[in-house]
Design a protein around this nucleic acid. Structure first.
Length: 975
RNA sequence: GCCCGGAUGGCGGAAUUGGUAGACGCGUCAGACUCAAAAUCUGGUAUCAGCAAUGAUGUGCAGGUUCGAUUCCUGUUCCGGGCACCA
C-alpha cells in the first residue's frame, strides 16, 4: 500500500468538515486559548506561498495547544475593503463587491486544501454590512467621546458639555487648539455652530483639514502607493498636495498609554522599539522668538526644541515652508525667491523631503530676536522642517546638530560655538556632557543642568514653557474613495451630526460607475439620491473609512460573530479575553498594530471589554520573497528593413553578462548568432556590426525554469505564443537565466502557487516543508528544490506502517529501552521546539526520530502512537490516517480523531542515559572533553573530572595545587 | 535620510545561557538493487595541503572584551521591511 496523500487528505478534510471537529464554543470548564492570524486582504492574485507561512505556524500552535488541553479559538476571515478592488472595478467594470466575493471564494478553496483547523462558523468579512454595522457603531462612540486627561480615559462628550456649562474649559484644555479658552458664561452665550466647532476639537473621531496627494488630471486623491516620483501611477500626470477636509482619530491622546502598555505585552524588542520611535515622545521646550520689526503687534515664531540648553547656540531659525507666518514675514526683496521655493515644495512628498541629501532652503529676509541676548537671527525656510511636527519651526544650533550644521555650511551662515573644544568646526557634536561657553547666564554650567534653568527663565519671562511632544500625529481616518465603510454622519449648516445608533448599518450603496466626485470628493458624492437620503438631517458624508477601520477591532468579533445586539458580548470577551498568540508580518508594526491597540483601550475605557491590550503575544513571520528569473532579449536598432522582421533572439546568461560588460558582442557570440540564425533560414549579413544590438532583460515565469535552466519549449508557448518563433543562443546546450531576489508579485512572474505543490506532494508535505525552510520569523526567498526531502520523510514514515508484500506491519510488542529513549528524546525536543516556535528544528527532529526508529526496525504501537500525536499539528492528515491503524492493531475503540488525544508526557527515566559533553580547560587551555549524565550533580561532575584519564594523568605529572570548579558548561582547572 | 532587522559550506539552514561550528534537508560524488529506468538503500561531501593519520584556515568586512566569540561591544559594507492614503 503506497502513501496516497490525495486520497488521505480528501478523506480527512471531508471528515473534519462533516463532524464539525474544529467548531469551538465558549466552554467555561476548559482554559481558553486564542490563536489568531492577521486576516488576509483577498487580492485577485490569490494565495501565494508566502501567505500560508504564518497560517501554518499558527495552525501548528493551535493544534498543539488543543492537544495540551486548551479550548482553542482559531478563526479566519477577510479584510475585504480596500483600494485594489476599487481599482479593479475602474479598470474592468466589475463591482468591488462581486470581485471581492469571487476572490474570497478562491482564497477559501486554497486555504481548505491545506488542512487548517479554523472554525469557519466564525468567518467574518469587513465589507459585510452585518460586520461594518459595528465598525460604524464604534466610530460613533469615538465621535461621541473625548479624552478626559484628568481621569486619563475616554469620557462622553455629554459629560464634557456639562463641565463646560459649569466651569468653561479650564479643566479640559483643548487638545485640538490650545488657544481655545472660554468661561462657563462664554459657553452659554455661544451659538450652536460655535459650540459644535469647539466640541469637534475634543472628539476622539473628529473632522479637520489635512494635506492629500491631489492629481488634477484624474480629478482625484491618490494613495502614496499610486504616486511615483511625483507623478500618478496611472497616466503619469503631475501630483500636487492639496488641503481637504478629513476625518481623524485623536490617537495622540492615547500616546502615553500606548507607550506604557508596551511593558505588559510580549512583542519582540524591535517591534516595541519601532512603536516607541513612532510615537516619538520627547521632552523639551517651546520658545517664542519675537520677529524683528513686529514688536508692536507681538508676532513671534514659536519653536520646539528638545535642547533648550543650547539656546545661545542658535544661529538661525528654520520654518517649514507651509508655516503660516512665511507670507507675513517675507521681505519684499526676497518674495520672488521664496515663492519659487514654495512652488518647488508643492511637488515634494514628505518622504522625498526627508530622504533628500541635497540641502535646499531659502532666506525669508526676516529676522527674529534672541529671547535672552536680543541678537538678530535670520529666518529661513527649508524642506527638512515639517509643518506636522512640533510647531513647524526649529531653532538651528549648528555646533550641536548635524543637519543644522550642514545647512549652515551650505549657506555660509556663521556658526557660534557654545561647547568650546567639544566642537572642532569640522562636524557637529550633539553631546550633552559639555560645559557651556558663549552662553550668557549659562556660562560654565554643564549642558545637562542648563535645560531646567532655561525653562525656568522662559516661564518667568512668559516667552516659553516646558513641553512634551510626540512625533506621532493623529490618524487620518477618511478616504475620498468608494470601497470602504460609509460614515454614519450627516452635515447640516457646517455641523456634523451622528446618525442614531438604531439606524445602523448605513449600507454602502451600489454605484453604476466609480469615478471621482466633484471638488475632490469621493465617488459617493456622485450619487445625489444617496447623499440626500437623510432628508432633513442634512447631507451624508461622502468619504469612506480607511482600510484599517475594520481591522482595528476584528479580533473581538470572532469571539461572538453572530451577535446582532452588540459588537461582542461582554460574556464572550471575558471568556476568550485577549488574543494569546497573534501571528503576522512586521510590515504592520506601526499601522494596524497601533490602531487596534488604541481601539481596544478606548473600548476598555468605555467598559465594553475588560482588557486594554488586544494581543498578549505577537509572533512576526518573515516575508517569503520571490526568486525572479530573467531572459535576455537581443534588440536591434529598428529600421525599415529585414532586421525588423527577425524573430525574437534570446541569449543565455553567459553571453548577456559578457555583452553587458563590454557593451558589445564578442566574436564567439557573433559566430554562434550567425550559425543559429542561418539554421533558421535568416540571412543577417553584417547585422551585428551595423545594427547596434542592445539587451533587454525580461522577467520570465519562474515555473518555466528548472533552477536556472529555461524550459525553452514552455517559453515558446508562454503568453499565447508571443515568443513562439523565439530563437535561443545556448551555452553548453542549455539556456541559463539570470536571477534576483525580489518581493513576490504577479507582475514579476515569480509567484509560486501553493495549489500546484499541494497537488504534487500533498498538504502535509507542503506544510512541513514551509516550516522546514527556516525560522518563521526570518525572511527568505522561496525555493521549491528541497521539498522532495520532506516528501521522502513522509513516505518513509508510511513504510514504517506498511510494507509492500506484508501490508500492515504494526505490532503491540513492548518496546526496548533504546526505543523508549528515542521516543522520549523526541517528546522533549519537539515539545520544547513547538513551545518556542522553532518549527524548523522540530521538523528536523521528526526526521531524525524516524530514521533512528527505522534503523531499529521498530514497528511497535506503544512508540508510534505518541509519535503520531506529536506529528499531528505538523502533518495532520497522515497522522490521523496512521493513527486509525494504531487503534486497529491495539484493538481499541479509541477517540475517532487524534485531536481529542493529549500531547504525550515526557518520562524522564528514559533520558538518563543521554549525556552532555563538557569541555575541560586547564589554565584556560582546552584539554579534553567528558560526557556527563543529565542528572548528574556537581559532585558527580567533579568526581568524573578526577577520574578522567587524560586529566588524571596530567595532574599526576604536574602535581599541581589544584582547584576544580564548574562554571556554565565549562569545567575549569586552575593551577 | 530616519527607524527596525539580517549576513554561517555549492544551496536552505543548525548550534536553546559565551563552551567540540556546519545538526537536518537539498544538491552532488561513489556504491548496492535493476536488462534498464524510477523508487529505495549504504557511504563520502566547509576550504586548502596530504595516499593517510593529520595540520592550517574558516560564521560579510575591520577592530575590541574574554582562557574561549557565529553568540557580547565599537565601527563599516551589502541586503530586506517600515516611514503615516497598499493592506
Amino acid at each position: 500500500m503506497e502513501y496516497d496523500f490525495i486520497e488521505i487528505e480528501k478523506k480527512w478534510q471531508g471528515y473534519w468538515k462533516e463532524a464539525d471537529i474544529y467548531k469551538v464554543t465558549n466552554n467555561p470548564g476548559k482554559p481558553s486559548y486564542y490563536v489568531l492570524d492577521m486576516f488576509p486582504y483577498p487580492s485577485g492574485a490569490g494565495l501565494h506561498v508566502g501567505h500560508p507561512l504564518g497560517y501554518i505556524a499558527s495552525d501548528i500552535y493551535a493544534r498543539y495547544k488543543r492537544l495540551k488541553g486548551f479550548n482553542v479559538l482559531h478563526p479566519m476571515g477577510y479584510d475585504a475593503f480596500g483600494l485594489p478592488a476599487e481599482q479593479y472595478a475602474i479598470e474592468h467594470g466589475i463591482p468591488p463587491a462581486i470581485s471581492t466575493d469571487r476572490n474570497i471564494q478562491n482564497f477559501r478553496k486554497q486555504l481548505d486544501h491545506l488542512g487548517f483547523c479554523y472554525d469557519w462558523s466564525r468567518e467574518i468579512k469587513t465589507s459585510d454590512p452585518a460586520y461594518y454595522k459595528w465598525t460604524q457603531w464604534i466610530f460613533l462612540q469615538l465621535f461621541q467621546c473625548f479624552y478626559n486627561r484628568q481621569e486619563k480615559k475616554a469620557d462622553s462628550i455629554e459629560n464634557l458639555v456639562k463641565d463646560f456649562e459649569r466651569t468653561g474649559n479650564q479643566n479640559h484644555p483643548c487638545p485640538g487648539d490650545e488657544a481655545v479658552n472660554f468661561s462657563a458664561a462664554q459657553w452659554q452665550a455661544m451659538d450652536e455652530k460655535s459650540r459644535s466647532d469647539i466640541l469637534m476639537h475634543y472628539r476622539l473621531a473628529y473632522c479637520g483639514y489635512g494635506e492629500v496627494n491631489w492629481c488634477e488630471a484624474l480629478g482625484t486623491v491618490l494613495a502614496n502607493d499610486e504616486v511615483i516620483n511625483g507623478l500618478s501611477e496611472r497616466g503619469g500626470f503631475p501630483v500636487e498636495k492639496k488641503v481637504l477636509r478629513q476625518w481623524y482619530l485623536r490617537i495622540t491622546e492615547y500616546a502615553d498609554r500606548l507607550l506604557d502598555g508596551l511593558h505588559q505585552i510580549d512583542f519582540s524588542d524591535s517591534m516595541k522599539e519601532m512603536q516607541t520611535n513612532w510615537i516619538g515622545k520627547s521632552v523639551g521646550a517651546e520658545i517664542s522668538f519675537p520677529i524683528a520689526g513686529h514688536e508692536a503687534d507681538q508676532i513671534a515664531i514659536k519653536v520646539y526644541t528638545t535642547r533648550p540648553d543650547t539656546i545661545f547656540g542658535v544661529d538661525f531659525v528654520v520654518l517649514a515652508p507651509e508655516h503660516l507666518l512665511v507670507h507675513l514675514i517675507t521681505t519684499v526683496d526676497r518674495e520672488e525667491e521664496v515663492e519659487a521655493y514654495l512652488q518647488y515644495m508643492k511637488s515634494r512628498s514628505e518622504r522625498e523631503r526627508l530622504a533628500e541629501k541635497k540641502i535646499t532652503g531659502c532666506f525669508t529676509g526676516a529676522y527674529v530676536l534672541h529671547p535672552f541676548s536680543g541678537k538678530k537671527i535670520p529666518v529661513w525656510i527649508s524642506e527638512y522642517v515639517l509643518s506636522g511636527y512640533g510647531t513647524g519651526a526649529i531653532m538651528a544650533v549648528p555646533c550641536g546638530d548635524e543637519r543644522d550644521f550642514r545647512f549652515a555650511q551650505h549657506f555660509q551662515i556663521p556658526i557660534t560655538n557654545i561647547i568650546g573644544d567639544a566642537f572642532t568646526g569640522a562636524e557637529a557634536n550633539a553631546t550633552k556632557e559639555a560645559i557651556l561657553q558663549n552662553s550668557g547666564f549659562l556660562d560654565g554650567i554643564a549642558m545637562k543642568d542648563a535645560g531646567v534653568i532655561v525653562v525656568e527663565k522662559l516661564v518667568a519671562q512668559n516667552i516659553g514653557k516646558a513641553k512634551t511632544q510626540y512625533k506621532m500625529r493623529d490618524a487620518a481616518f477618511s478616504r475620498q474613495r468608494y470601497w470602504g465603510e460609509p460614515f454614519p454622519i450627516t452635515w447640516k449648516e457646517g455641523m456634523a451630526k451622528a446618525l442614531p445608533e438604531n439606524t445602523l448599518p448605513l449600507v454602502l450603496p451600489d454605484l453604476q460607475e466609480i469615478k471621482p466626485g466633484p471638488d475632490g470628493e469621493g465617488p459617493l458624492a456622485n450619487n445625489r439620491q444617496w447623499i440626500e437620503s437623510a432628508g432633513s438631517d442634512g447631507l451624508r458624508e461622502s468619504a469612506t473609512m480607511p482600510g484599517y477601520a475594520g481591522s482595528s477591532w476584528y479580533f473581538l468579533r470572532y469571539m461572538d460573530p453572530h451577535n446582532n445586539t452588540a459588537f461582542c458580548s461582554r460574556e464572550a470577551s471575558d471568556y476568550w479575553n485577549q488574543v494569546d498568540l497573534y501571528v503576522g508580518g512586521t510590515e504592520h508594526a506601526v499601522g494596524h498594530l497601533l490602531y487596534s491597540r488604541m481601539w481596544t483601550k478606548f473600548l476598555f475605557d468605555r467598559g465594553w471589554i475588560g482588557f486594554e491590550e488586544p494581543f498578549k503575544k505577537l509572533l512576526n513571520q518573515g516575508m517569503i520573497q520571490g526568486s525572479s528569473r530573467f531572459v535576455y532579449k537581443l534588440n536591434f536598432l529598428q529600421e525599415e528593413d529585414a532586421t525588423s522582421k527577425l524573430p525574437a533572439i534570446f541569449i543565455s546568461k553567459k553571453y548577456a553578462d559578457k555583452f553587458l560588460q563590454h557593451k558589445k558582442t564578442d566574436t564567439v557570440l557573433e559566430k554562434e548568432l550567425y550559425d543559429v540564425l542561418k539554421k533558421h533560414g535568416i540571412q543577417v549579413g553584417n547585422i551585428l556590426k551595423d545594427r547596434h544590438p542592445d539587451i533587454m532583460t525580461l522577467h520570465v515565469d519562474v515555473n518555466m525554469v528548472d533552477g536556472y535552466e529555461l524550459d525553452t519549449a514552455a517559453f515558446q508557448k508562454w503568453r499565447n505564443g508571443e515568443y513562439a518563433k523565439a530563437v535561443f543562443i545556448l551555452e553548453e546546450g542549455r539556456y541559463i537565466c539570470g536571477a534576483e531576489v525580489e518581493k513576490m508579485s504577479k507582475s514579476k512572474f515569480n509567484t509560486i502557487n501553493p495549489d500546484d505543490l499541494v497537488m504534487k506532494y500533498g498538504a502535509d508535505t507542503f506544510r512541513m516543508y514551509e516550516m522546514f525552510l527556516g525560522p518563521v520569523e526570518q525572511s527568505k526567498p522561496w525555493d521549491t528544490r528541497g521539498i522532495e526531502g520532506v516528501h521522502r520523510f513522509l513516505k518513509k514514515l508510511w513504510r514504517m506502517f506498511f510494507q509492500e508484500e506484508k501490508g500492515l506491519i504494526l505490532q503491540n510488542a513492548e518496546p526496548t529501552a533504546a526505543e523508549w529513549k528515542i521516543l522520549h528524546t523526541a517528546i522533549k525536543k519537539i515539545g520544547e521546539d513547538t513551545e518556542r516556535f522553532s518549527f524548523n528544528t522540530a521538523v528536523s527532529t521528526f526526521m531524525i526520530t524516524v530514521n533512528e526508529l527505522a534503523e531499529l526496525d521498530c514497528h511497535k504501537t506503544a512508540i508510534w502512537e505518541p509519535f503520531l500525536i506529536m506529528l499531528s499539528p505538523y502533518a495532520p492528515h497522515i497522522a490521523e490516517e496512521l493513527y486509525q491503524h494504531v487503534l486497529q492493531v491495539k484493538g481499541q475503540d479509541g477517540p475517532k480523531t487524534i485531536m481529542d488525544m493529549d500531547f504525550p508526557e515526557l518520562e524522564k527515566k528514559y533520558l538518563v542515559e543521554t549525556s552532555k559533553v563538557y569541555p575541560i580547560s586547564i589554565n584556560g587551555k582546552l584539554r579534553t572533553t567528558i560526557s556527563i549524565s543529565l542528572e548528574a550533580t556537581q559532585a558527580d561532575v567533579e568526581a568524573l573530572v578526577l577520574a578522567n584519564e587524560v586529566v588524571k594523568k596530567w595532574l599526576e605529572e604536574k602535581a599541581p595545587k589544584k582547584i576544580i570548579y564548574v562554571r556554565n558548561k565549562m569545567i575549569n582547572i586552575v593551577i
